[in-house]
């Protein structure tokens, strides 16, 4: 069997091998003096590195500062507000509501304007008791350049009344 790679021996030391791999490695190491030496070397290297890197640690480590938590609390409220306003569903919904309300207001304004125009055109004064229809008719007559005296327009008499009148004569 070929000698083990250093990384394999390292993984063996770090308990990162499967059960069957561990068996194979153990069997090989028990037979191979070269790999036994390598195992020893790797162990020493790991120890040395760990000792060395431990020197980089700070002498004192502070407790978790409490002011950060209160800052987080403040941030939470800001975030909640932003989340409510800028959530992916709410943004289009809010925009849509604005558009709809704008359109509604505009249509009401237009309706009111139209109403005022109609009333100013056909109901000039409250004393005039003529119906809207007669004004429209006047406008129509004027527009086709005809002048008709409205007093001449008389209601058509009921044909029965005419017959009765003649009968009386």
């Amino acid at each position: 069997m070929k000698c083990l790679k250093k990384e394999k021996i390292r993984a063996f030391i770090d308990y990162e091998l499967t059960l069957s791999e561990v068996k194979n490695v153990k069997r090989h190491i028990s037979e191979c003096s070269y790999c036994q030496r390598t195992l020893q070397e790797v162990r020493e290297e790991i120890k040395l590195t760990q000792r060395t890197l431990e020197l980089l640690s700070p002498e004192t480590v502070p407790e978790s500062p409490s002011h950060l938590l209160s800052e987080m609390e403040e941030k939470k409220y800001q975030l909640t507000f932003r989340k409510f306003i800028l959530s992916p569903i709410r943004v289009p919904a809010v925009v849509l509501v604005f558009i709809i309300s704008f359109l509604l207001v505009m249509s009401f304004m237009l309706l009111a304007k139209n109403q005022r125009e109609v009333s100013s055109r056909y109901l000039r004064s409250p004393e005039e008791k003529k119906g809207t229809l007669s004004f429209i008719m006047e406008d129509f007559v004027q527009s086709i350049s005809l002048s008709v005296d409205s007093e001449e327009i008389k209601p058509i008499e009921n044909p029965r009344v005419i017959v009765l009148k003649e009968f009386v004569k």
Binding site: K6, E7, K8, R10, A11, D14, E16, V42, E45, I46, T49
Partner: peptide
Amino acid sequence: IGKILSRATE
């Protein structure tokens, strides 16, 4: 990871 650690340590 094994290879990296092994080489880096070395």
